[in-house]
Design a protein around this nucleic acid. Sequence first.
DNA 1: CATCATACCTATAACAAATATGTATAAGGA
DNA 2: TCCTTATACATATTTGTTATAGGTATGATG
Lengths: 113, 113
Amino acid sequence: MAKTNAAFMSGIPELVVLRLLSRSQMYGYELIRAIRLASGESIVLAEGVVYPTLHGLEHRGLLKAKEKLVKGRVRVYYQTTAKGKKRLVALESDWHRINNGVEAILRRLICQS
Amino acid sequence: MAKTNAAFMSGIPELVVLRLLSRSQMYGYELIRAIRLASGESIVLAEGVVYPTLHGLEHRGLLKAKEKLVKGRVRVYYQTTAKGKKRLVALESDWHRINNGVEAILRRLICQS
DNA sequence: CATCATACCTATAACAAATATGTATAAGGA
DNA sequence: TCCTTATACATATTTGTTATAGGTATGATG
């Protein structure tokens, strides 16, 4: 499932989208750049990943969309809803749990059951 | 793709299997417990996940298998090959990169591009 | 003798990311 | 003017992997 980001990506688009849009509203194209920049180029999501993610999250009521006409071009701004923020908290918790589990295994020098 | 481990699992089975079997050989059933215990119950992989992973890794030459008869029962011990260890190094690198990227986004309090 | 833990296995489903396209406008350069 | 690039949206299809749900068989326990 991986080329540009090489594995370890499941759940990441939803998590980072909900997170970034929980602080400020953004439109898709802007969000894609924001993810790339904010992650230090570590996470690069193509439009074909981000737009379906946005639509899915909106459909589930986790994002709210608002169209704006800017310089003769339509932009669709999204922001995380209250429900989306609850989901975000749960996702962050899951993410840290998995993370700690993997770290524990990677760091382990000795012993096994 | 997620129930027991709720998302964030892509690539994880390959990573933790290669890692644990790079230090000591184990058989599948033992490995499943080891993953659960070593991760502090954070990562629980079912047999239907682990066995196909083992077979796939062996087929790719990243693991070496060795059958043993113990107490009248066949056990298949696996250990990570040199090629598998190279793959492990690459995977750990990828994992830390993605991880840092996500952390950077989650921790970020201010600013966006 | 029945049940549970051990120990292996595989087929199918489910699901999300990656890829490849496609449309259309504005801006900038030749 | 024309061409190209950046912007801005969109979706269909492919791909790849985990999750689930089965199945077989032995040894130990009560």
